[in-house]
Amino acid sequence: MRFTIVVQGGPYTSQASLSAWHFARAVVATGHEIYRVFFYHDGVYNGNSLLTPPQDETDLHMAWCTLGRDHGCELVVCIASALRRGMLDDGEARRYEKPLANLNKLFIVSGLGQLIDGAISADRTVTFGN
């Protein structure tokens, strides 16, 4: 089956991101497929490449990147949620003349249509929030 996973909680604020990541890994491990991970609300902070947790804590940002890189999971951050919270890729940083971009290139900035498409196209949609 194909899963869309919606992440609404920010890393290191609630457990939602950690739960969603464990779930995503289990989807892959059980032979199912991740159609899309959609980061919404504070979930967009998972794409922040500047996150620097202590070395003895799980690096959630890198954990998502690994999932995206090794398993080809599509990681999409909602553009409206992201811009509002200062999560910008190179293109958006240029467009809004901001001094830097902080969104990892493994994350795709896209619109809410990707959430709806994910919900419609996947066999199951599971939401993690706080």
Binding site: H41, L115, I116
Partner: peptide, 18 residues
């Protein structure tokens, strides 16, 4: 919280699809 406002944005987008 911003859940309601961002949820409404999603509802409006959803209406364009299904």
């Amino acid at each position: 919280t911003l859940y309601g406002q961002e949820g409404l944005d999603a509802i409006m987008m959803g209406s364009a699809f299904t």
